[in-house]
Design a protein around this nucleic acid. Structure first.
Lengths: 190, 190
DNA sequence: GTCTATATGCTGATAGAC
DNA sequence: GTCTATCAGCATATAGAC
């Protein structure tokens, strides 16, 4: 028997916020809708979180903690610099596309007026440093712009949620494989 | 002397809406703010457009018309399938990143509740068919997934507005060159 | 075509009982 | 910790004068 605790309910609330943010976007998601989703009243939210902006920051913290842990775990025991990059991409896409709501709420433009924007960007940068390291480990042609390569790959991945559907096209792992293979091997046959 | 006409003012209004949508996002941009930006009163907007949703659709129509024209024009006289792809990418990124407001307002997740979502997606698809054609013209290794390639490249490009800054990193044209070269040549030197 | 004035409803947030 | 009740403000949109 798990008795409901304050931490418990905060977690449920966070989950509810993630659902609403990912479904409607931050601005369109109302505190009422979040409260409904969590099965409580609007006012009760403010016992757990100071403001809506605060809630968005908390969702980012949790989402980036989760995806960071998943991506790091996926690297365990994988050898070869390109294979490790692919494994990280697969983990990133799996969690973004199929364990949807949480990470999904976060991989989109940050509303321009929220308090805590800076912190949100810092959290993202910290997560993305995993990819910086993986790309630094690659042997690349002299003069390759590794920063642009990272941003290109992350961009391709983060945009997938606008077009990917579970029923058609490649699964997340296959997508990662294709993205990395395209970059690794090159496509010009002329 | 150009006398203000209805069409004139509708255009100004559209421009104002694009500015506000790209600055704050659709949901956070108020009709008041748009009216301010256009130098008129809120109620006057409704003479030109039926609703806020309608205004978003109109902004998409104009933005995709512009970027479609720019990208097509950029292909004039360019030869070589890869060179043509790069030229289109350069045009796409130039207009997205430096002629900002209009296209910028459009290259982001579509709010889930707007009337006219279907039309917006159709407008996007029509524009992206330029890239479908360019990629179909490439000689690629057998078995290459051309759809995923297109979506990968467009994703990498469309995500740039979240990180690109005019003062640091590659210019839009250089970015296009790097993106396409990475895919064309491949990066594995082992 | 643009204005003033206003309708109606929803927003994030607070006060205070339990 | 969660509730009921409520605030003040802003949202989109409309009516009708000019």
């Amino acid at each position: 028997m798990t008795k409901p605790t304050a931490a418990n309910r905060s977690g449920q609330l966070l989950e509810a916020a993630a659902v609403c943010f990912s479904r409607e976007g931050f601005d369109a998601a109302s505190m009422r809708a979040i409260a409904d989703e969590a099965g409580m009243r609007t006012a009760s939210i403010y016992y757990h979180f100071d403001s809506k902006d605060n809630l968005l920051v908390a969702v980012h913290e949790e989402a980036l903690r989760r995806i960071g842990a998943a991506t790091t775990a996926a690297l365990h025991d994988v050898e070869g610099a390109w294979e490790r990059l692919e494994a990280a991409c697969a983990a990133h896409l799996v969690i973004l596309l199929t364990e949807g709501t949480f990470v999904n709420a976060v991989m989109r433009p940050v509303p321009s007026k929220v308090e805590g924007r800076e912190l949100i960007f810092k959290l993202r940068d910290d997560y993305e440093s995993i990819f910086t390291d993986l790309i630094n480990a690659l042997a690349l042609p002299q003069g390759t712009d590794r920063d642009t390569l990272r941003l290109m790959l992350l961009g391709a991945m983060n945009w997938t949620f606008t077009w990917w559907h579970p029923k058609e096209g490649p699964a997340p792992e296959a997508l990662a494989s294709i993205f990395v293979a395209n970059l690794r091997t090159g496509l010009d046959v002329t």
